[in-house]
């Protein structure tokens, strides 16, 4: 395989998850007042976990 796709998927979604968490922390009041709770934070954590799992699979397969 020329490129294991789990690497770009893992990297990309880890970064996206991180950005969402960051927005959940820094823009907390705005988000809570619009939605009633901090959805960005939780959704960001879920995406970040998904990204990390993909990276784990990638490194397990590689080693």
């Amino acid at each position: 395989m020329r490129l294991d796709i789990k690497l770009p998927i893992g990297l990309f979604f880890s970064i996206i998850g991180f950005i969402l968490i960051l927005s959940g922390i820094l823009d907390k009041q705005k988000i809570v007042s619009q939605l009633g709770y901090n959805f960005n934070l939780w959704w960001g954590i879920i995406i970040l976990v998904f990204g990390i799992i993909m990276l784990l699979f990638y490194f397990i397969k590689k080693s």
């Binding site: 960051l22 927005s23 959940g24 823009d27 705005k30 988000i31 619009q34 939605l35 960005n40 960001g44």
Partner: peptide, 10 residues
Amino acid sequence: HFMPTGLLGL
């Protein structure tokens, strides 16, 4: 209508 900052970007 539903997406706040950050989420809207996603």
